[in-house]
Amino acid sequence: MDERRPLATEPEADGRGAPADGEGRPVLEVRDLVKRYPGAEALNGVSLTLPRGTVLGLLGPNGSGKSTLLKSIAGLVHPDEGEVRVEGLPVGTATKARVAYLPEVDPYYRWMRVAQVLEWTATFYDDWEPDRAEELLQFMNLRRDQKVGGLSKGQRARLRLVVTLARNAPLLLLDEPLSGIDLASRARIIRGLIGQFRGGEQSLIISTHEVAEVEGFLERVVFLERGRIRLEGEAEALRVKHGSLQALFEEVFA
């Protein structure tokens, strides 16, 4: 079952593929990426092109290389072979200003207050939108005077979402954004994500192994297994062929 097809050619005539300012190049190009860790291979020749404005689901079981791929794009992991380009630029200081990365771990200092986390991000990233941050903060039920060290796991996960989504970055990378968020509020969080997502100008990659939660939001999917792309395609086309993505996920990784 190999449904690979180039992601770059998007024949849909719904207008969003047409860049308004002639920036026709994809927001992300990954070419033949290889990353080896001592004793293991995390990525084994991954190539991927993401057209502007697309929501891509990076699906796979734990340890399939999802995080490593996202970190390579964010500039945290340095591939042994291959190349990553964001808006045509090789990963580096300039691309870090254009990528909003939501890590799986908690990167903030325990002594920081929520307000300080926001100030930090606003200071370092010029695409920060204060109004949006305020809106998200309310939506996520967080207060500015709360200390990071005193937040629950779920609250910290929500804080990371606030910080990532309040940036008007061309490329958002969310690494397991739902991990740590209790089942009851997941639907709500996804609604918030859809509500804040800008489409068109913004592209998004979500890595998750909880496919059902984001099923309807994904436009393209890449199934990763042991560092290789096992299957990739347009979400709707795959669904029409196989039923839900969740079912396909279970089928692929059975």
């Binding site: 300039a94 200003a97 200071t123 990233y125 010029d126 008007n168 970055a169 800008r198 100008e201």
Partner: peptide, 19 residues
Amino acid sequence: MAAGAIQRRTGLTGRRFGL
């Protein structure tokens, strides 16, 4: 388009340095 129009500074500015 709007996301691309933002001028994204890199490196330390005065405020970043202070922080």
